[in-house]
């Protein structure tokens, strides 16, 4: 691949990505105080966060197609996720919850443990 072709390719990707990020700010900058925008600003972030959690855990699908088939890392993922929830409700220390759950997940994945 030539230098120009690669640079063009990267440029197109960069512009397309930035376009999706900047569009609301350009199109709606005068309406930042509109009650609908405030409504979305209040309720959309928690909804998105919850959706990202569901998305991140999508490999855990018990009973999919009528049987207990989960992806290779399905159970460790769910157990680690519940550990994060438990740790966070208990101590409410973000870094502790994240490191605890991630450490447990890494241990389960690397040892190859599977219930």
């Amino acid at each position: 691949m030539s230098l120009v072709a690669l640079l063009t390719f990267i440029g197109v990707c960069a512009l397309a990505t930035f376009a999706t990020r900047v569009l609301p700010f350009v199109a709606l900058s005068r309406h930042a105080d509109h009650p609908l925008i405030l409504h979305l600003g209040r309720y959309l972030p928690p909804a998105v966060m919850m959706i990202l959690v569901i998305y991140a855990l999508r490999d855990f699908r018990p009973l999919a197609e009528g049987r207990l088939n989960v992806a290779a890392d399905g159970w460790p993922m769910l157990i680690a996720a519940l550990t994060v929830v438990g740790l966070h409700l208990w101590r409410r220390h973000a870094l502790l919850s994240i490191i605890g759950g991630t450490g447990l997940y890494m241990a389960m994945i690397q040892v190859g443990w599977m219930p």
């Binding site: 966060m49 990202l52 959690v53 991140a56 855990l57 993922m77 680690a80 996720a81 994060v84 929830v85 966070h88 973000a94 919850s97 994240i98 759950g101 991630t102 997940y105 890494m106």
Partner: peptide, 9 residues
């Protein structure tokens, strides 16, 4: 998994 844990927290 740190990213998943971050989203949960």
């Amino acid at each position: 998994f740190a990213l998943t844990a971050l989203f949960i927290v």
